[in-house]
Each structure stands twice: as C-alpha cells, then as structure tokens.
Amino acid sequence: MYICEDEPQQLKSLVAMIEKYIMIENLDMQVVQAVTTPAPLLQDLDDQHQRLYFLDIDLGQAMSGIKLANRIRQVDVNCKLVFVTTHAELALETLQYQLEPLAFILKDQPDNVQGQVIQAIQLAQQRWQQASPVAKPFLTFKTIDQLRTVQVAEILYFETAKVPHKLIVHLANAHFEIYGTIKTVAKQRDEFYRCQQSIVVNCQHVKAVNQQAHVVTLSNGEQVPCSLVGGRGLVKQLR
C-alpha cells in the first residue's frame, strides 16, 4: 500500500487509520511507503505486486495527483488507485475513463473518512479476488486505445464488423469493438465455436440450436444465424 499526501498531519492520520484496519481485520497487506512528495513513489514502480495507492489530488507542487497517477498507471496497469480530495466535483468522467480509479475519498467530511477508507480497501480486495486467474478465466482484447479485460463467462458471441480486422464483442448488456480476426478468436478458448462465416458463439451461453431455421438462441434471448454445417457441429460440441 502506498500513500502520498502533502499535509503531514493528514498523512499521519490516514496511515494510522489504514494500519488500524489492517491489524483488526488481520489482512495480508502493509503500508510500504507513506510520503509527502511523489518522487519516492516513482522510483519504486513495478507491476509484479498488487498495489493500492492513496493519492491526494492537490499535492501542492508541479506534479498533481492526477499526473502522478498517470505515471503509475503507465508502469503498473493493474494497480488500484484511490484519490483523496476536497472537492466532490473532481469525480470527473474524463478521470474515470483514463485512470479507472477505485474510489474517491472526500476529506471535507472528516467524520466519514474512516468509513470511506475501509470501503476502498474492501473494494480493492474484492477486485483482486475476482481478477485472480484461478477463480474465473478472462481474456484481454485490444480496442482502439485501450486493453480491455473481460471474463470469458461474460462473452456471448463475437461478430465481424463491416470493416476488415475489426470484431464486435457482445456481452449480455454491452458491446464494444476490438481488433482481431474471427479465426484467431475461435481458437482462443475451447468453448468458442464458429457457427457461421462471421460469428463465433460462446457455447456456455447457447440455449437452443434450431437446425431447421438456422438460428442459435443465446442465454439473453438474442438469436444469431448459423450455417448448415455450423449448426450441426455446434450441436455435436454441446453434447
């Protein structure tokens, strides 16, 4: 756990709060650095550990907490970020999109800070548990400007876009576009099956295969077409 806060007094109380919580709950965590300037944090970056950062947005110097967070993210993609700030307005969408912070802690409600800190720690632990590869397999896809990680179980099907080398990934209530070919996607997991030229379905979500009408019904009720051969092969694979 790493903490950066320019006010020594506030830093001290934050560290005390966190250490107390770790001790009470007997968590497998520790405060590695608690500093008032960003420099020491930047020297000690790697992506080999599960790290949780508490950063003050207004650090009182050239490098703001947001810039610091950007630098940290560049090295450690999987770290969890929590911003400590005084203004509620800073919960900006642009920040959300680019840094994906775990939470914001509002300093101007002193009674509530402890609760917020504890919540943030719990949330971080939850995320790490979900992300552990043993628990649930996931895949990482390349979009135009991001890497997106999705659990295999969430994927309903892939579909080719009208533009070459682009695929649309369909989840139950979301879809986004990635780079790749339908061929390589079909090979990525055993449960992926190419039921037609342009469609790869996730067998976990296939509810019914209608070989007469050449459609596959998925768990969300959506129907996708399949070819003559594809339908037959899908039924075989499902058995």
Binding site: T143, I144, V163, K166, N173, A174, H175, F176, E177
Partner: peptide
C-alpha cells in the same frame, strides 16, 4: 473504419 462504438 477508424471509429468504434461501445455501448454498456
């Protein structure tokens, strides 16, 4: 081709 749309 250079534009993509994501919905959630």
């Amino acid at each position: 081709p250079q534009v993509s749309l994501a919905t959630e």
